[in-house]
Simulated assay, not measured.
Amino acid sequence: MADSAETLVETPLASLHRELGGRMVPFAGYSMPVQYPAGIMAEHLATRAGAALFDVSHMGQAELVGDGAAAALEQLTPADVQILKPNRQKYGLLMTAEGGILDDFMVANLGDRLFLVVNASRKHLDLPAIEAVLPAGVKLNRLEDRALLAFQGPQALALLAPLAPALAALPFMGVASTTIQGIPVLASRSGYTGEDGVEISVAAEQAEALARILLALPGVVPAGLGARDSLRLEAGLCLYGNDIDETTSPVEAALTWTIGKRRRTEWNFRGAERVREELDSGAKRLRVGILPEGRQPARGHTEIAVGGATVGEVTSGGFGPSLNGPCAMGYVAREHAADGTKLDLMVRGKAVPARVAATPFIPHRYAR
Rank of each mutant, 00 (worst) to 15 (best):
M95T: 03
A49T: 12
D104W: 12
T96E: 12
I83C: 13
A52C: 14
E63A: 14
K85M: 09
T77C: 06
R88K: 06
A72K: 01
A72P: 01
Q82S: 14
G92T: 10
K85Q: 12
L93V: 06
L64M: 02
Q61S: 08
A49E: 15
D67W: 10
A52K: 03
G92Y: 09
G68N: 07
G66V: 11
P78V: 04
A70R: 03
M59A: 09
A71S: 14
I101D: 12
L84T: 12
R88N: 05
G68E: 05
A70M: 00
T77R: 07
A71Q: 11
Y91R: 09
V81Y: 07
K85R: 08
L94H: 12
H58T: 03
A79D: 04
A52E: 10
Q89I: 13
G60I: 12
K90Q: 14
I101T: 08
L64D: 05
A51M: 01
F105P: 06
G50M: 00
Q61W: 01
L84Y: 14
A70K: 07
M95C: 03
N87R: 14
M59W: 00
D67T: 15
G99R: 14
L76S: 08
E63G: 09
A52F: 08
A52D: 02
G66H: 12
P86H: 04
P86F: 10
E98I: 10
K85A: 13
V81F: 13
V56Y: 11
N87D: 15
T77P: 00
A52N: 06
E74Q: 15
A69C: 10
A79H: 11
L84A: 12
N87T: 10
G99V: 06
I83Q: 14
A62P: 02
F105A: 06
T96S: 01
V81N: 02
F54T: 04
G66F: 11
Q75D: 11
V56M: 08
G50E: 03
I101G: 06
L73D: 05
S57K: 05
D55F: 02
Q61P: 01
M95A: 00
L84S: 09
D104Q: 12
D67S: 15
I83A: 15
E98N: 10
G60V: 11
A70Y: 12
V81P: 00
